[in-house]
Each structure stands twice: as structure tokens, then as C-alpha cells.
């Protein structure tokens, strides 16, 4: 079973190179990393997958990215309910991210059902729990708890990531389990969430039989 850290931001965005982050990830118990704006490769026994996050909030940007980055894991930053539903209906999107920044109704039972149907994962950024303090951290934890309730009911996948820009922000698998426990996730759920993304990627990257 793979253990994936969904979205790391190596040098030049961060202060650590991809190779160094791969080394740290291996020490932390990960075997796959999704690096934003880096080509797929293998470093120090860790499989690196290319990741792209679309922050634009328009469907045009989403479809353009899908067309241009065919071999990448595509994440889309969530917006309002209409945008999220359109994203979930788009083939080629692998996960929806930044849901902690959206309104409560932006991801409801309809969108949750759609995410489960279309096999699109919901990204949980652990760095938000670490870096935020006070009210903003409470909001993130409350939002993640709501998403967990929806996930248990409708069965869509979660993808967990450290969102690290430095080796100092990477966390071990055990630490991930402890941090996800803060919003009620069990150890088994966390381990499943850490392994889902490469499977979803394999599924959509295979050629489709049209008829």
C-alpha cells in the first residue's frame, strides 16, 4: 500500500530542494510525493508525481490545465457550490482542495455524492492545522469535521497532505495520524486517505474504452 503526501512545494517556492524533501519523506514513512510544478521522477526510493493546483476559480482555467497537464495530478481550489459541482463533473480533475476557505454550503450532500460517484478526492491540508492559531484553527478543524461526517456517509475519498514548503514542515505518518485525530479521524481512515490518491490517478490515466 502506498503512503502519499499530497502536495509539497519544493524549491524555488520553498526553501528545500525536491531531492532533500524526498529524503525527509522517506525518513517520515512516505513512499510517494506529489510535488507541485515538478516533473515525475524517482528520488531516493520515493516516487514523485507531478501536481498542479488551479487557483483561478474559473472553469476555463480548469479545462486548460487538464488539456496541458495530462500526466499530472490536478487539484482545483474550491469556490462556491456551482463552481464546485462543475469541477466535480469535469473529467481529469483528481481532487478538490482549499475547502476550509469556502462557505459551509459550498460542499454539501449533493457535492459529496457527486465526488463519490466521480471518484474525486477531497484534499485535507494538515499545514492549516499547524500554521493557523485560535479562531482560524478552530474554523479549519470544524470544517474538516463536517467533511468527515459527509465522507463517512457518502464514501468519497480523502487525500491528506502536509502542504510543506520546507523539510521543517514535513510530518511523519504517525504525526499525521495524531493531527487528523484532532478532528475525529481514526487511524484506519487516515491510513486509507494517505493511500488513495495514486489509485485515483492510475484509474483516470488509463485509456478509456469508448464503445
Amino acid at each position: 500500500m502506498t503512503v502519499t503526501d499530497a502536495f509539497i512545494h519544493p524549491f524555488p517556492k520553498g526553501d528545500s530542494t525536491l531531492q532533500r524533501m524526498a529524503m525527509t519523506a522517506r525518513e517520515c514513512g512516505f513512499d510517494t510525493l506529489i510535488a507541485v510544478s515538478h516533473h515525475p521522477c524517482e528520488c531516493h526510493g520515493v516516487r514523485i508525481l507531478q501536481g498542479v493546483i488551479v487557483f483561478d476559480g474559473t472553469m476555463k482555467a480548469v479545462t486548460n490545465t487538464i488539456r496541458q497537464k495530462k500526466r499530472a495530478i490536478i487539484g482545483v481550489a474550491a469556490g462556491d457550490a456551482t463552481f464546485n459541482r462543475s469541477v466535480l463533473k469535469t473529467r481529469g480533475v483528481h481532487l478538490i482542495t482549499n475547502l476550509h476557505r469556502t462557505q459551509r454550503n459550498a460542499f454539501d450532500q449533493v457535492t459529496a455524492k457527486l465526488a463519490a460517484e466521480k471518484r474525486i478526492a477531497v484534499h485535507l491540508d494538515i499545514s492549516q492545522i499547524i500554521s493557523c492559531r485560535g479562531h482560524s484553527r478552530q474554523k479549519v478543524l470544524a470544517r474538516y469535521r463536517e467533511l468527515l461526517i459527509l465522507q463517512r456517509k457518502f464514501g468519497f475519498s480523502f487525500a491528506i497532505g502536509s502542504g510543506a514548503t520546507s523539510i521543517l514542515e514535513q510530518r511523519t505518518v504517525r504525526e499525521m495520524i495524531l493531527l487528523t485525530e484532532l478532528f475525529g479521524m481514526t487511524k484506519e481512515e487516515t491510513i486509507t486517505a494517505l493511500g488513495t490518491l495514486p489509485d485515483l490517478f492510475e484509474d483516470t490515466s488509463r485509456p478509456r474504452v469508448v464503445s
Binding site: 499547524i130 500554521s131 521543517l168 514542515e169 514535513q170 504525526e175 493531527l179 485525530e181 484532532l182
Partner: peptide
């Protein structure tokens, strides 16, 4: 868990 949530001391990043 609390240890895992520490990211800096006196503005110096650390883990």
C-alpha cells in the same frame, strides 16, 4: 500531537 504542531521558536523555523 502538540509537539507535531510546533513550527517555530522565536520566529526561527524548527521541527
Amino acid at each position: 500531537c502538540a509537539i507535531a504542531a510546533i513550527r517555530s521558536i522565536n520566529g526561527r523555523p524548527l521541527r
